[in-house]
Simulated assay, not measured.
Amino acid sequence: MRILFIGDVMGESGQEMFEKTVPLLKRNLHPQLTIANGENATRGRGINEKVFKKLQKAGADVITMGNHTWDNREIQDFIGTAKKLIRPANFSAGQVPGIGYTIVKVNSVSVGVLNVQGRVFMSPSDDPFAVGEKIIAQLEKETSIIFVDFHGEATSEKEAFAWNFDGRVSAVVGTHTHVQTNDARILPQGTAFLSDVGMTGPYDGILGMRRESVIGRFKNQLPTRFEVETSGGQTLGAVVIDVDEKTGRAQKISNLRIDPDHPYFE
């Protein structure tokens, strides 16, 4: 089983990069399952139904979210029926719409996809370890392949989660920081790990936002409206993970970065 995961899709630039690059990657890499984080997909804040369907059409089988899940109010109108759109499972248990995990059939193989959010330097949420334990225990009864998108700021928290569930999940891949890390590895019991897969969108912004606003905020500390960068190059952060379908153990993990400084050759 080969899983392709695409990092945080950022605004219209991210949508464009996703549409033109993901179909190419799928033709060349032949993943059986493609997952993407879409929490920044609509104008950099949340996702609406139009963009959700757009990413699906371009190749996303499952879309995960994060701390900007509710920033676009329209999501509340369709997340309850969108079974392939999952938000962090540890959001205020029972108090918000949507689901935190899903099970998809890939040919005859079931794959569990779980989304959780960290608590270090993030907005309040329930304990991702406790919530993760409960859901992973449920998923283990149905499948040996479990993929986790851990949306968090602290690399230590993401790494701790991966080690805690080593051997019980196939992969723990981090999102949120928009900067791809260089620590892809397979832990001793077979869990693939990457602290952060990076982002998909503007390459010449600062984490996808216009440079001037971000630099100004650091220099003067005044309230600033951040807007997604619309000019310059584009980037795509991704990771490819091969998993043994019987055991659920990861066999290989390779991070992938595509941008003007790292062109992709077929």
Rank of each mutant, 00 (worst) to 15 (best):
Glu19His: 08
Gln189His: 15
Phe52Asp: 03
Lys83Tyr: 05
Arg45Leu: 13
Glu212Pro: 00
Ser195Ile: 14
Phe5Trp: 13
Pro128Thr: 12
Pro260Tyr: 04
Ser144Asp: 08
Ser92Gly: 00
Asp126Tyr: 15
Phe265Gln: 02
Gly216Val: 01
Glu16Ile: 14
Leu256Gln: 03
Lys246Thr: 14
Phe18Tyr: 15
Asp71Ala: 04
Ile86Ala: 09
Phe218Lys: 08
Phe226Ala: 09
Ile258Thr: 02
Ala41Gly: 05
Ser13Trp: 00
Phe193Arg: 04
Asp261Val: 00
Phe52Lys: 09
Gly232Asn: 12
Gly44Ile: 08
Thr235Leu: 14
Ser254Trp: 00
Lys83Arg: 14
Lys84Tyr: 08
Leu139Val: 08
Ala58Arg: 10
Glu12Tyr: 10
Val172Tyr: 02
Val109Lys: 11
Ile3Gly: 02
Lys252Thr: 09
Met17Ser: 15
His30Ser: 11
Arg45Ser: 07
Ser254Val: 09
Pro263His: 00
His178Ile: 02
Leu207Asn: 09
Leu4Ser: 05
Val148Gly: 04
Val62Tyr: 06
Glu19Phe: 02
Gln117Ile: 15
Val239Lys: 14
Ile35Ser: 07
Gly167Glu: 07
His176Met: 06
Glu19Leu: 06
Ile75Gly: 11
Ser254Cys: 05
Asn37Tyr: 03
Leu24Phe: 07
Glu140Ile: 02
Ala60Val: 11
Arg217Ile: 01
Thr191Arg: 08
Pro31Met: 14
Asp77Leu: 07
Ser231Arg: 15
Met199Ser: 08
Gly201Met: 12
Leu139Gln: 06
Ser123Phe: 09
Met1Asp: 05
Val109Met: 04
Ile79Ser: 06
Leu33Glu: 10
Gly198Gln: 02
Gln15Ala: 14
Ile6Thr: 09
Asn90Tyr: 03
Ile146His: 04
Asn107Phe: 01
Glu12Gln: 14
Asp244Gly: 06
Lys53Ile: 00
Ala89Gln: 04
Ile145Asp: 08
His68Cys: 10
Lys141Pro: 00
Gly94Cys: 06
Gly174Ser: 09
Gly59Leu: 12
Ser254Met: 04
Met122Asn: 03
Gln32Ala: 10
Ser92Glu: 09
Phe129Gly: 04
Val120Leu: 13
Ala60Asp: 11
Gly174Asp: 04
Met10Asp: 00
Lys141Glu: 14
Thr191Cys: 12
Ala184Thr: 07
Ile75Met: 12
Gly233Leu: 09
Tyr264Ser: 00
Asn28Arg: 08
His30Leu: 13
Ile6Met: 09
Trp70Asn: 12
Arg2Ile: 09
Arg87Leu: 02
Tyr264Leu: 09
Tyr264Ala: 00
Pro202Gln: 10
Met122Leu: 13
Gln221Gly: 01
Asp196Pro: 01
Ile99Tyr: 07
Leu114Thr: 06
Leu194Ala: 03
Gly94Asn: 06
Asp204Glu: 14
Met10Ser: 02
Ala171Arg: 11
Lys252Asn: 14
Gln95Gly: 04
Thr235Gln: 15
Arg168Asn: 11
Gly38Thr: 02
Tyr264Asp: 00
Phe147Asn: 04
Gly118Trp: 05
Ile35Thr: 08
Ile241Phe: 07
Lys83Trp: 01
Val113Glu: 07
Arg249Gln: 15
Asp126Ala: 14
Phe18Met: 11
Thr34Gly: 05
Gln32Glu: 10
Phe193Glu: 07
Gly11Asp: 11
Ala160Lys: 12
